[in-house]
């Protein structure tokens, strides 16, 4: 294996957390593309400004699965504002490092989360606007 992973990455790869589909999520987003070999689908459920539940599905390598696992663990129960602040660097650090060539997996996971929060907030605005009617 030319790419060397930390123990933590392999642990989260073999026993992924928060992985699977979610019923009735508030938001579903996809990030990445199977053509590039990396893709993540993220489900989000929000209550009172907090991430009540978060799940993901992965088409990708060990790093893809591990970053999705640790990120969902990191932000579950956090407020949206707190979750927005999570960066790819935080993800990589939590995994005790990622090979440089695999940093894009952390970027992909962080992007998916930020996109999910953004979509959620957009949908909220629409709902509020619709209410007075």
């Amino acid at each position: 294996m030319p790419i060397k992973y930390s123990k933590k990455v392999l642990e989260y790869f073999m026993n992924p957390k928060n992985i699977g589909e979610m019923e009735n999520p508030d938001v579903v987003v996809e990030e990445g593309n199977p053509v590039c070999g990396d893709m993540l689908r993220m489900y989000l459920k929000v209550r009172d400004g907090r991430i009540e539940d978060i799940k993901f599905l992965s088409f990708g390598c060990a790093a893809n699965i591990a970053t999705g696992s640790i990120l969902t663990e990191m932000v579950k129960g956090k407020t949206l504002e707190e979750a927005k602040k999570v960066t790819m660097k935080d993800i990589a650090e939590k995994l005790e490092g990622l090979p440089p060539i695999k940093m894009h997996c952390a970027i992909l996971a962080a992007k998916a989360l930020h996109k999910a929060i953004e979509e959620y907030e957009k949908s909220k605005v629409k709902n509020n606007y619709a209410k007075p009617k």
């Binding site: 294996m1 030319p2 790419i3 392999l10 790869f13 073999m14 590039c36 070999g37 990396d38 088409f59 990708g60 390598c61 060990a62 790093a63 893809n64 699965i65």
Partner: peptide, 23 residues
């Protein structure tokens, strides 16, 4: 994806190679 398959098989002691970009 092939790297994930390779690493899983490795856990069972099976050594293979993948043509995946990720590896």
């Amino acid at each position: 994806e092939g790297e994930s398959i390779t690493l899983h098989l490795n856990m069972y002691g099976i050594c293979v190679s993948t043509g995946s970009a990720c590896a």
